[in-house]
Protein backbone atom coordinates (compact mmCIF):
# COMPACT_ATOMS: atom_id res chain seq x y z
CA UNK A 1 0.00 0.00 0.00
CA UNK A 2 2.79 2.43 0.94
CA UNK A 3 4.65 1.73 -2.29
CA UNK A 4 2.23 4.08 -4.04
CA UNK A 5 3.14 7.77 -3.73
CA UNK A 6 -0.51 8.85 -3.67
CA UNK A 7 -1.06 6.66 -0.59
CA UNK A 8 1.97 8.12 1.18
CA UNK A 9 0.76 11.65 0.46
CA UNK A 10 -2.75 10.71 1.62
CA UNK A 11 -1.39 9.44 4.94
CA UNK A 12 0.74 12.56 5.47
CA UNK A 13 -2.12 14.98 4.72
CA UNK A 14 -4.50 12.85 6.77
CA UNK A 15 -2.21 12.93 9.81
CA UNK A 16 -1.67 16.71 9.51
CA UNK A 17 -5.39 17.47 9.24
CA UNK A 18 -6.15 14.81 11.84
CA UNK A 19 -4.04 16.83 14.29
CA UNK A 20 -5.44 20.26 13.37
CA UNK A 21 -9.17 19.46 13.14
CA UNK A 22 -9.89 18.22 16.71
CA UNK A 23 -7.75 20.99 18.22
CA UNK A 24 -9.69 23.83 16.56
CA UNK A 25 -12.83 21.73 16.97
CA UNK A 26 -12.35 21.32 20.74
CA UNK A 27 -12.68 25.04 21.43
CA UNK A 28 -15.81 25.17 19.27
CA UNK A 29 -17.25 22.12 21.08
CA UNK A 30 -16.52 23.47 24.58
CA UNK A 31 -17.95 26.88 23.64
CA UNK A 32 -21.04 25.02 22.37
CA UNK A 33 -20.38 26.09 18.81
CA UNK A 34 -19.85 22.66 17.28
CA UNK A 35 -22.86 23.14 14.98
CA UNK A 36 -20.97 26.09 13.49
CA UNK A 37 -18.39 23.59 12.25
CA UNK A 38 -21.14 21.83 10.33
CA UNK A 39 -22.38 25.11 8.86
CA UNK A 40 -18.82 26.10 7.88
CA UNK A 41 -18.22 22.76 6.20
CA UNK A 42 -21.33 23.36 4.08
CA UNK A 43 -20.31 26.93 3.31
CA UNK A 44 -16.97 25.60 2.07
CA UNK A 45 -19.03 23.56 -0.43
CA UNK A 46 -20.82 26.74 -1.50
CA UNK A 47 -17.41 28.38 -1.91
CA UNK A 48 -16.23 25.51 -4.09
CA UNK A 49 -19.37 25.78 -6.23
CA UNK A 50 -18.88 29.56 -6.62
CA UNK A 51 -15.21 29.03 -7.52
CA UNK A 52 -15.93 26.32 -10.08
CA UNK A 53 -18.78 28.34 -11.65
CA UNK A 54 -16.81 31.59 -11.81
CA UNK A 55 -13.64 29.87 -13.01
CA UNK A 56 -11.75 30.91 -9.87
CA UNK A 57 -9.58 28.83 -7.53
CA UNK A 58 -12.20 26.78 -5.63
CA UNK A 59 -9.96 26.33 -2.58
CA UNK A 60 -9.39 30.07 -2.19
CA UNK A 61 -13.10 30.91 -2.63
CA UNK A 62 -13.92 28.13 -0.19
CA UNK A 63 -11.61 29.66 2.48
CA UNK A 64 -13.21 33.10 1.93
CA UNK A 65 -16.72 31.58 2.11
CA UNK A 66 -15.86 29.91 5.43
CA UNK A 67 -14.47 33.12 6.94
CA UNK A 68 -17.49 35.18 5.80
CA UNK A 69 -19.87 32.53 7.13
CA UNK A 70 -18.15 32.46 10.50
CA UNK A 71 -18.34 36.25 10.73
CA UNK A 72 -22.10 36.08 10.01
CA UNK A 73 -22.60 33.37 12.68
CA UNK A 74 -20.57 35.39 15.23
CA UNK A 75 -22.45 38.61 14.35
CA UNK A 76 -25.84 36.94 14.93
CA UNK A 77 -24.56 35.25 18.13
CA UNK A 78 -23.37 38.53 19.62
CA UNK A 79 -26.22 40.78 18.42
CA UNK A 80 -29.06 38.34 19.07
CA UNK A 81 -27.82 35.97 21.79
CA UNK A 82 -31.28 34.47 22.27
CA UNK A 83 -31.33 33.38 18.62
CA UNK A 84 -27.67 32.38 18.27
CA UNK A 85 -28.52 29.02 16.70
CA UNK A 86 -30.50 30.86 14.03
CA UNK A 87 -27.28 32.22 12.48
CA UNK A 88 -25.96 28.66 12.11
CA UNK A 89 -29.22 27.48 10.51
CA UNK A 90 -29.35 30.42 8.08
CA UNK A 91 -25.70 29.94 7.02
CA UNK A 92 -26.18 26.18 6.65
CA UNK A 93 -29.38 26.54 4.58
CA UNK A 94 -27.96 29.31 2.39
CA UNK A 95 -24.78 27.27 1.81
CA UNK A 96 -26.64 24.09 0.87
CA UNK A 97 -28.92 26.10 -1.45
CA UNK A 98 -26.04 27.95 -3.10
CA UNK A 99 -23.93 24.80 -3.46
CA UNK A 100 -26.89 22.87 -4.93
CA UNK A 101 -27.84 25.53 -7.47
CA UNK A 102 -24.34 26.59 -8.52
CA UNK A 103 -22.93 23.06 -8.79
CA UNK A 104 -25.13 22.61 -11.86
CA UNK A 105 -23.32 25.51 -13.54
CA UNK A 106 -19.80 24.43 -12.55
CA UNK A 107 -17.65 24.84 -15.65
CA UNK A 108 -14.70 22.79 -14.52
CA UNK A 109 -13.73 20.31 -11.84
CA UNK A 110 -15.65 17.59 -10.11
CA UNK A 111 -17.97 19.14 -7.54
CA UNK A 112 -19.04 15.75 -6.16
CA UNK A 113 -15.44 14.98 -5.11
CA UNK A 114 -15.73 17.75 -2.49
CA UNK A 115 -18.65 15.99 -0.78
CA UNK A 116 -16.58 13.02 0.37
CA UNK A 117 -13.17 14.44 -0.49
CA UNK A 118 -10.35 13.20 -2.65
CA UNK A 119 -7.55 12.48 -0.20
CA UNK A 120 -6.01 9.95 -2.62
CA UNK A 121 -5.60 12.72 -5.21
CA UNK A 122 -3.70 15.30 -3.11
CA UNK A 123 -0.61 16.87 -4.62
CA UNK A 124 2.59 18.00 -2.91
CA UNK A 125 1.34 21.62 -2.79
CA UNK A 126 -1.62 20.53 -0.69
CA UNK A 127 0.74 18.62 1.61
CA UNK A 128 2.75 21.81 2.17
CA UNK A 129 -0.47 23.79 2.79
CA UNK A 130 -1.69 21.21 5.32
CA UNK A 131 1.73 21.18 7.04
CA UNK A 132 1.81 24.99 7.41
CA UNK A 133 -1.76 25.01 8.70
CA UNK A 134 -1.13 22.19 11.16
CA UNK A 135 2.00 24.00 12.39
CA UNK A 136 0.05 27.22 12.97
CA UNK A 137 -2.72 25.42 14.85
CA UNK A 138 -0.21 23.53 17.03
CA UNK A 139 1.71 26.72 17.76
CA UNK A 140 -1.50 28.56 18.71
CA UNK A 141 -2.64 25.78 21.07
CA UNK A 142 0.79 25.30 22.69
CA UNK A 143 1.55 29.00 23.17
CA UNK A 144 -1.93 30.02 24.33
CA UNK A 145 -3.06 26.82 26.08
CA UNK A 146 -3.79 28.54 29.42
CA UNK A 147 -5.44 31.56 27.83
CA UNK A 148 -7.74 29.39 25.69
CA UNK A 149 -8.65 27.37 28.78
CA UNK A 150 -9.48 30.57 30.72
CA UNK A 151 -11.56 31.85 27.79
CA UNK A 152 -13.62 28.65 27.67
CA UNK A 153 -14.00 28.51 31.47
CA UNK A 154 -15.47 32.03 31.79
CA UNK A 155 -15.00 34.75 29.20
CA UNK A 156 -15.72 37.74 31.46
CA UNK A 157 -13.33 36.51 34.16
CA UNK A 158 -10.66 35.99 31.49
CA UNK A 159 -11.18 39.57 30.23
CA UNK A 160 -10.77 40.96 33.75
CA UNK A 161 -7.55 38.90 34.07
CA UNK A 162 -6.18 40.85 31.11
CA UNK A 163 -6.58 38.16 28.46
CA UNK A 164 -7.47 39.56 25.03
CA UNK A 165 -10.46 37.29 24.56
CA UNK A 166 -11.71 38.94 21.36
CA UNK A 167 -8.32 38.53 19.70
CA UNK A 168 -8.06 34.89 20.80
CA UNK A 169 -11.58 34.17 19.51
CA UNK A 170 -10.81 35.87 16.21
CA UNK A 171 -7.60 33.87 15.66
CA UNK A 172 -9.44 30.68 16.56
CA UNK A 173 -12.26 31.52 14.12
CA UNK A 174 -9.81 32.18 11.31
CA UNK A 175 -7.93 28.94 11.96
CA UNK A 176 -11.21 26.98 12.20
CA UNK A 177 -12.48 28.44 8.91
CA UNK A 178 -9.25 27.79 7.00
CA UNK A 179 -8.78 24.27 8.40
CA UNK A 180 -12.36 23.37 7.47
CA UNK A 181 -12.04 24.79 3.94
CA UNK A 182 -8.79 22.91 3.26
CA UNK A 183 -10.04 19.70 4.83
CA UNK A 184 -13.23 19.84 2.74
CA UNK A 185 -11.09 19.40 -0.38
CA UNK A 186 -9.23 16.37 0.97
CA UNK A 187 -11.45 14.59 3.51
CA UNK A 188 -14.75 15.93 2.15
CA UNK A 189 -17.12 18.65 3.31
CA UNK A 190 -19.70 16.20 4.63
CA UNK A 191 -17.05 14.41 6.72
CA UNK A 192 -15.09 17.38 8.11
CA UNK A 193 -17.60 18.18 10.83
CA UNK A 194 -17.28 14.61 12.13
CA UNK A 195 -13.53 15.09 12.66
CA UNK A 196 -14.17 18.40 14.43
CA UNK A 197 -16.57 17.06 17.02
CA UNK A 198 -16.42 13.23 17.17
CA UNK A 199 -12.83 12.78 18.47
CA UNK A 200 -13.49 15.43 21.15
CA UNK A 201 -16.81 13.80 22.09
CA UNK A 202 -15.08 10.40 22.25
CA UNK A 203 -12.20 11.61 24.42
CA UNK A 204 -14.68 13.28 26.81
CA UNK A 205 -15.89 9.77 27.69
CA UNK A 206 -12.49 9.01 29.24
CA UNK A 207 -13.05 11.81 31.82
CA UNK A 208 -9.56 13.24 31.64
CA UNK A 209 -8.21 16.71 32.32
CA UNK A 210 -8.56 19.45 29.69
CA UNK A 211 -4.97 18.96 28.50
CA UNK A 212 -5.26 15.18 28.20
CA UNK A 213 -8.71 15.43 26.58
CA UNK A 214 -7.11 17.52 23.83
CA UNK A 215 -4.20 15.10 23.45
CA UNK A 216 -6.49 12.05 23.36
CA UNK A 217 -8.81 13.69 20.82
CA UNK A 218 -5.82 14.29 18.53
CA UNK A 219 -4.70 10.66 18.94
CA UNK A 220 -8.22 9.35 18.20
CA UNK A 221 -8.53 11.63 15.21
CA UNK A 222 -5.18 10.52 13.73
CA UNK A 223 -6.05 6.86 14.38
CA UNK A 224 -9.41 7.37 12.62
CA UNK A 225 -7.71 8.94 9.61
CA UNK A 226 -5.05 6.21 9.34
CA UNK A 227 -7.58 3.41 9.81
CA UNK A 228 -10.10 5.06 7.46
CA UNK A 229 -7.57 5.42 4.63
CA UNK A 230 -6.34 1.84 5.14
CA UNK A 231 -9.88 0.44 5.11
CA UNK A 232 -10.71 2.46 2.00
CA UNK A 233 -7.64 1.03 0.22
CA UNK A 234 -8.51 -2.60 0.92
CA UNK A 235 -12.32 -2.41 0.88
CA UNK A 236 -12.54 0.16 -1.94
CA UNK A 237 -14.71 2.48 0.16
CA UNK A 238 -14.69 6.27 -0.03
CA UNK A 239 -11.79 7.41 2.27
CA UNK A 240 -13.72 10.32 3.84
CA UNK A 241 -16.70 8.12 4.67
CA UNK A 242 -14.43 5.37 6.09
CA UNK A 243 -12.67 7.93 8.33
CA UNK A 244 -16.02 9.23 9.63
CA UNK A 245 -17.37 5.72 10.30
CA UNK A 246 -14.21 4.63 12.11
CA UNK A 247 -14.36 7.80 14.25
CA UNK A 248 -17.98 7.08 15.20
CA UNK A 249 -17.04 3.47 16.05
CA UNK A 250 -14.29 4.75 18.37
CA UNK A 251 -16.79 7.10 20.01
CA UNK A 252 -19.19 4.23 20.76
CA UNK A 253 -16.32 2.09 22.08
CA UNK A 254 -15.31 4.80 24.55
CA UNK A 255 -18.94 5.45 25.47
CA UNK A 256 -19.30 1.74 26.24
CA UNK A 257 -16.09 1.86 28.31
CA UNK A 258 -17.51 4.78 30.30
CA UNK A 259 -20.87 3.09 30.93
CA UNK A 260 -19.21 -0.18 32.00
CA UNK A 261 -16.62 1.51 34.23
CA UNK A 262 -19.28 3.67 35.92
CA UNK A 263 -21.45 0.61 36.52
CA UNK A 264 -18.41 -1.18 37.98
CA UNK A 265 -17.69 1.73 40.36
CA UNK A 266 -21.37 1.84 41.46
CA UNK A 267 -21.36 -1.93 42.06
CA UNK A 268 -18.20 -1.66 44.19
CA UNK A 269 -19.71 1.01 46.46
CA UNK A 270 -21.20 -0.49 49.62
CA UNK A 271 -24.99 -0.10 49.94
CA UNK A 272 -26.04 2.41 52.59
Amino acid sequence: MLSYEFMRLAFVVGILLGIALPLVGSTAVFKRLSSSGDALAHSSLAGVAIGLTAGMNPLLVSVIACIVSFLIIEFVRKKFPKFSELGVTVVLSASVGLAGVLSGFARTGNFESYLFGSILLVDSMEVVLAAVLCGLVLLFYILFHNQIFALIYQESEAKVQGIKTNLLSLVHSLLLSIVIAISAKTIGALVVSSLIAIPVAASLQAKLSYKWTLILSVILSVVSVLAGITISYYADWKPGASIALFGVALFFLLLLYRIVSEAFVRAKKPNK
Binding site: V29, F30, I142, L143, F144, H145, N146, Q147, F149, A150, I152, Y153, A158, Q161, G162, I163, K164, L204, K207, L208, S209, Y210, K211, T213
Partner: peptide
Protein backbone atom coordinates in the same frame (compact mmCIF):
# COMPACT_ATOMS: atom_id res chain seq x y z
CA UNK B 1 -19.78 17.95 32.72
CA UNK B 2 -18.99 18.52 29.05
CA UNK B 3 -16.06 20.78 30.00
CA UNK B 4 -13.25 18.58 31.22
CA UNK B 5 -11.18 20.53 33.73
CA UNK B 6 -9.38 19.42 36.85
CA UNK B 7 -9.27 21.42 40.09
CA UNK B 8 -5.58 22.13 39.41
CA UNK B 9 -6.27 23.40 35.88
CA UNK B 10 -9.06 25.76 36.96
CA UNK B 11 -7.10 27.21 39.89
CA UNK B 12 -3.95 27.55 37.74
CA UNK B 13 -5.91 29.36 35.01
CA UNK B 14 -6.23 32.28 37.45
CA UNK B 15 -2.59 33.03 36.63
CA UNK B 16 -3.13 33.15 32.86
CA UNK B 17 -2.24 36.45 31.28
CA UNK B 18 -1.81 37.44 27.65
CA UNK B 19 1.72 36.02 27.69
CA UNK B 20 2.44 32.89 25.65
CA UNK B 21 2.41 29.91 28.02
CA UNK B 22 6.12 28.89 27.91
Amino acid sequence: SSFPATVEEVVGSGLARMKPTP
